[in-house]
């Protein structure tokens, strides 16, 4: 019964072939450092799911942002858990993505024919840091407020365009409700969309080229 059902689906969707192409790929000799990309992907999905859950109660308004976080932490069942996972997952993701980059650098995996994978990966690293920067403001407490004052000020020190970047980031000259709102929009819409696209391209290239071997003595 089930077999007939799956065969019927497979005939139309071809997921058996997808399974072989995506998950039954030949791998070089097992190496735990090669799992960091998958770990980054899992963390991205985890952040996505816990983030969606948090928006069920969070509100990005200066009047209520902090109160809504307090509500999540103290009143909502398992709210402390969902926010805790999102909070620590964010830190862990920056760490894992960075070590993933180091591994690719050390194992020289960025060389031909994987240059584009590397460049897209750099984009993903920057997007991950952008997620950390925008997400840090959302609790709207003293620490996040002043961290964003300082962070946007640093961006403002760029020559010539600094002033404009500062105003674009803050949505004006001051840190305000506009800043919180645009950081929220960037955090939950813009960057996730960008990252999903980049991850898709990244994974496609990995499947196309396969995993790189670690360099041998003659390489």
């Amino acid at each position: 019964m089930w077999k007939r059902f799956f065969d019927w689906l497979d005939e139309r969707l071809g997921f058996n072939g997808m399974y072989k192409a995506l998950l039954d790929r030949p791998e070089p000799r097992g190496n735990w450092w090669n799992t960091l990309g998958s770990a980054s992907l899992v963390l991205f999905l985890l952040q996505g799911i816990t983030g969606i859950f948090l928006t069920m109660y969070y509100t990005p308004s200066p009047d209520h942002a902090y109160d809504s976080i307090t509500y999540i932490m103290n009143d909502v069942a398992f709210g402390w858990l969902v926010r805790g996972v999102h909070h620590w997952g964010a830190t862990l993701m920056v760490l894992v993505v960075f070590i993933h980059m180091l591994r690719v650098f050390v194992s020289a995996s960025f060389k031909y024919p994987r240059e584009l994978t590397w460049i897209i990966g750099v984009g993903l690293l920057l997007a991950t840091l952008g997620m950390g920067f925008t997400g840090y403001l959302l609790p709207w407490n003293q620490r996040s407020y002043w961290a964003t004052v300082v962070g946007t000020q640093i961006a403002g020190t760029a020559p010539l365009v600094g002033e404009f970047i500062l105003r674009a980031l803050r949505g004006g000259t001051d840190l305000s409700a506009l800043t919180l709102q645009r950081f929220f929009a960037i955090h939950i819409w813009v960057l996730p969309a960008v990252m999903t696209a980049l991850i898709g391209a990244h994974l496609y290239l990995i499947i196309r080229h396969g995993e790189s071997h670690w360099p041998k003595q003659n390489d």
């Binding site: 859950f53 009143d75 069942a77 398992f78 709210g79 858990l81 969902v82």
Partner: peptide, 12 residues
């Protein structure tokens, strides 16, 4: 299970 409880909390 905790996820469902989390989402439905105000209704519960």
């Amino acid at each position: 299970l905790p996820s469902i409880v989390y989402l439905l909390d105000p209704a519960l």
